[in-house]
Design a protein around this nucleic acid. Structure first.
Lengths: 241, 241
DNA sequence: GTTGTTTTTGACCAAACGGTCAAGGCCACG
DNA sequence: CGTGGCCTTGACCGTTTGGTCAAAAACAAC
């Protein structure tokens, strides 16, 4: 069983399970009302439940990030998790529910680096630190990056709501901070939203398009190490007032 | 039937059908030897064959780029093309063959802007023009961009060979040109490969992650128009010697 | 119009897939 | 140690999917 790099404490500790927006039409699936026999509650109760839900989500991350939603099968996930297929469906009502759970669980963590952008700090240092943190995530959590990439490239059918609400709110907030810096002459005049997009694009590229990057660079090179230096100069030059 | 923006002549004219590398294990599928009944030859002979192959590939582009390889079904493509499913399989031996044909047909066109990078031109003007051309492709051919994105995010199972040979060769070639410019002091000292990656990442982001960009920016904005300005300043600042 | 070839399709098939169910195993707790 | 609830699974089901096939339709050449 492939478990990937051991997750940092903050990562494992996060168990927010933010509910998906009602527009996805998926919440109904989870709320089976109070009919007869059913799987465990939304909030895991026993030790076994928390452990198995974690195992399943870890396996699902591995499989979904590699094959996309349609490309992944319950059998693949079951094998990866070391559980039987009906057992998966004891903990999650459907394949889609596993996917949604994964996405909403990881969303917060994925945006943490942006949240850390501190309006009170030194503008250029703050932004460069953000770039470095995002690049680190591409190195340490490429599967998470690809999971989102797969979802968004295909039109984010299970995430649109979260994008237009939560994500937009956070980005608008931080964009205002950046705009403040620009107007105060502390960084160059650049469009804050597109600055954020550029950071996403440039850092996630090294996770999402890893095979291409490696194919072009050839062997015996460390793409992310090189990218760190390149992006440092790029953003230093771009942001200098 | 969704036909998308009318393709420019140069686009439609291209019919290279570069053979996929033998490593993909797909070429064998096309070469059914000389057994009994079989579909039309690799090289279309009649008018009807060329027309229908084009129709199928156009439909396949629409469907594959939206749903990925596994997410797309032959029925979807058939409906989109206005043909029957067995008819698709009269022109292509399998779903995978359609996908491979699409990828190899589009690969060349996709790289044309990079090929146009002229060692004899003015370095900064050449690079800025490349950025603009790539961004135009994100606007005019988002489906093509997403097709590749889907493929590469999932590990490029049907393209690895082409990446490590054709693509690498072209990029290495152009990287040498850029390195020459840098060493001649005509542009700033930057890693040429990562410079090219950054152009890909920043321009294709607006096609591949379109839903995210639009969700964050809100309505009534033209992402690519704004991106054009932003990327112009970004690369101007980065490349100034 | 007859004939030989190319093109098209309805009916069909086997495998894969998401999901169900009833029954059995397991475990905590009294 | 017994009992009630939690956990697990083999067998099964209906649907979807990629692909086949034989036969019909369309077409081209004479």
């Amino acid at each position: 069983m492939h478990v990937g790099a051991s997750l940092p404490d903050a990562w494992a500790a996060r168990e927010t399970f933010r509910a998906a927006g009602p527009e996805t039409g998926l919440v109904r699936l989870r709320a089976r009302g109070s009919d007869g026999r059913m799987g465990p509650q939304k909030t895991p109760r026993t030790k076994i439940q928390t452990r198995n839900r974690e195992t399943i989500l870890e396996a699902a991350l591995e499989v979904f990030s590699q094959h996309g939603f349609r490309g992944a099968t319950l059998d693949m996930i079951a094998v990866e998790a070391g559980l039987s297929k009906p057992n998966l469906l004891y903990y999650f009502p459907s394949k889609e529910a596993i996917h949604v759970a994964l996405l909403s669980q990881l969303m917060d963590t994925w945006l943490d680096p942006l949240r850390d952008l501190d309006a009170a700090g030194d503008p250029i240092a703050e932004l460069l630190a953000y770039v470095r943190r995002k690049l680190q995530m591409s190195r340490d959590f490429p599967r998470e990056s690809r999971l989102f990439a797969n979802e968004i490239v295909q039109g984010a059918p299970r995430m649109q709501a979260a994008l237009a609400t939560d994500l937009k709110a956070l980005v608008d907030d931080k964009a205002a901070v950046i705009r403040g810096w620009a107007e105060g002459g502390r960084i160059a005049q650049v469009d804050p939203h597109h600055l954020i997009f550029s950071i996403w694009a440039l850092t996630q590229h090294y996770a999402d398009f890893d095979v291409q990057v490696r194919a072009v660079l050839g062997q015996n090179r460390d793409p992310i190490e090189e990218a760190a230096r390149f992006l440092d100069t790029l953003f230093t030059r771009l942001l200098a007032p």
